[in-house]
Design a binder for these strands. Structure first.
Length: 506
RNA sequence: GGUCCCAUCGUCUAGCGGCUAGGACAUCAGGUUCUCAUCCUGAAAACCGGAGUUCGAUUCUCCGUGGGAUCACCA
């Protein structure tokens, strides 16, 4: 009982393979990961696929790709090795559907010890029972009908092929104490704990049995999970007691909330899966940074909020995790993502942005060959200009369609304040002359900035506004220098020429 | 309804008995600027209520109120 040797830290992430990863799951896994690394421990991935009806093909591969994207590295469990799933570690299998005989063995043990019993009640009976209880304002709980069954009858009915489940027999009148790292002591009376089904009629265990057995067998030392699990924790502790096992340390993390109703964040609140955010072009650095700060904060008067993954790993502490839920503020996430995009190395960002650029080019019917150097250069210029204005990579191009398509000019737009047609034409001619003299080698962002600002002189607006309007056809856009740089000399001069014709048709 | 959890600006939070209650996002007002975005400066904005403990409570205790989670052969 007295354990002077500090137990090895082993934490696990235990997702059910539903085909996507909830953003809250990512937060939990991040904390798991930080905690394991800080303590020289191990992070185990275990697939909780005990509900066959929810099986989704390719879910585990997907999960592993999301983890890889996030930068989280686990130590045991399934891995993706050249596109095939391979399990590593000494405590496998790490997939619950492959551990059925293990659970059955432990269920048998509980039955033999009188801690669990067979139940033949039909789903229909249980439903009407619960409805009755609800009507009488009683908490819905199993009425223990099948606890009265004689052994002979049980054997007979099993022999007859009748379907059954196994329930744990919760002792009455006991107090269960949950020692929680973030919540302190929480106590429950066993009188309010239901005789939970631990083995389903299809032979699969329920979550409650599987999680306890596996966590014990896999020597898990700390369980980090969402607060929604707190009410079922007494069931787990009772199971640990029935088996005579020491229970791990619990840490129930605060919930992620939706911004409107402040309810648990769920699918109906919009994008909630990591895959959704990946598809929208959020950077892993931004997602990790943002999500780590929901329900946790380094404290100590620290006002910095931008942290890299290694830095977070350094300063994270389980003791500083909050108790109350945190609203998932998408606006702030966008701001953080924009910050990361802005500060990203442009060459590296180009690689990340490629799929989004392709998608955009397809949408505007622009043939782009990423192997072709001119096309690459063009897209690189667009990205360079957009980099400091993008909130997410999926926004690539959408604010500046004039880079990709022919523009439709309106004459009024070209006129700066109360300038006359003559003046406007003069300004465009001036731009035409200056740009016309620049040879391709000098068509750089820096040089264009320099020469056009010089040409603009004191009264910048009267020169820059018509030029920008001529190049973009838009009221708002990046600077005319940047637009000219992106469009190139030929297109720029052509658009200026068109603008002049619009003002004074020849 | 039972059980359990939670409570500082609109939101994320700092604070761990004595502070002009600090920061970030959002908002508003300026500045930089040809426009938009960026960037810079500033403003407004919070301790849920009531008792108690204490010389002194945002902070500790209790009650209330409010919000949430959970009560499946789903996890």
């Amino acid at each position: 009982m007295i354990d002077h040797i500090k137990k090895e830290v082993r934490v696990r992430m235990a997702p059910s393979p539903t085909g996507f990863m909830h953003i809250g799951t990512l937060r939990t896994v991040l904390y798991d990961y930080f905690f394991a690394r800080q303590n020289g421990g191990k992070l185990v991935l275990r697939v909780e696929d005990t509900d066959q009806s929810r099986e989704v093909g390719g879910a585990v591969e997907n999960l592993l790709r999301v983890l890889d994207w996030s930068g989280i590295v686990h130590d045991e469990g399934p891995f993706l090795v050249s596109d095939r799933i391979e399990e590593r570690g000494d405590y496998g299998p790490y997939t619950q559907s492959k551990r059925l005989s293990i659970y059955q063995k432990y269920v048998g043990q509980l039955i033999d010890a009188g801690h669990a019993y067979y139940c033949f009640c039909t789903v229909e009976r249980l439903d009407t029972m619960r409805q009755k209880q609800q009507k009488m304002k009683q908490p819905p709980m199993y009425d223990r009908t099948c606890l009265q069954l004689e052994l002979a009858e049980i054997l007979e009915r099993i022999d007859a092929g009748e379907k059954y489940v196994v329930r744990m027999k919760v002792p009455r009148g006991k107090e269960i104490i949950v020692e929680d790292v973030v919540r302190g002591r929480v106590s429950f009376s066993t009188n309010t704990v239901d005789d939970q089904v631990i083995l389903k009629s299809d032979g699969f265990p329920t979550y409650h049995l599987a999680v306890v057995v596996d966590d014990h067998l896999m020597k898990i030392s700390h369980i980090l999970r969402g607060e929604e699990w707190l009410p079922s924790t007494p069931k787990h502790i009772i199971l640990y007691e029935m088996f005579g096992w020491e229970n791990p340390v619990f840490a129930h993390l605060p919930l992620l909330l939706s911004s409107d109703g402040k309810k648990k964040l769920s699918k109906r609140d919009g994008d909630v899966s990591v895959e959704d955010f990946m598809a929208e072009g959020y950077l892993p650095e931004a997602i990790v940074n943002f999500v780590a700060f929901l329900g946790w904060n380094p404290g100590g008067g620290q006002t910095q909020e931008i942290y890299s993954m290694p830095a977070l790993q350094e300063i994270f502490s389980l003791e500083k995790v909050h108790k109350s839920g945190a609203v998932f503020d998408r606006v702030k996430l966008g701001k953080i993502n924009a910050h990361y995009i802005k500060n990203y190395d442009t060459e590296a960002l180009f690689e990340l942005a490629m799929p989004f650029m392709k998608k955009f080019c397809d949408r505007v019917n622009m043939q782009m060959d990423f192997e072709r150097i001119q096309d690459r250069d063009f897209l690189m210029r667009v990205l360079t200009v957009e980099q400091e204005r993008l909130m997410k990579l999926a926004d690539f191009g959408v604010e500046n369609p004039f880079f990709f398509e022919d523009i439709v000019l309106e004459k009024e737009l070209l006129v700066w304040k109360d300038a006359t047609d003559i003046q406007t034409t003069q300004m465009l001619t001036k731009a035409e002359e200056v740009l016309g003299k620049i040879d391709e080698d000098h068509w750089t962002r820096v040089y264009l900035q320099e020469i056009l600002m010089e040409t603009a002189g004191e009264d910048r607006g009267s020169f820059l506004w018509p030029l920008r309007a001529a190049l973009t056809g838009e009221k708002r856009s990046p600077s005319p220098m940047d637009c000219a740089w992106v469009l190139g000399k030929d297109t720029s001069l052509a658009r200026i020429g068109n603008a002049k014709l619009l003002i004074i048709p020849s």
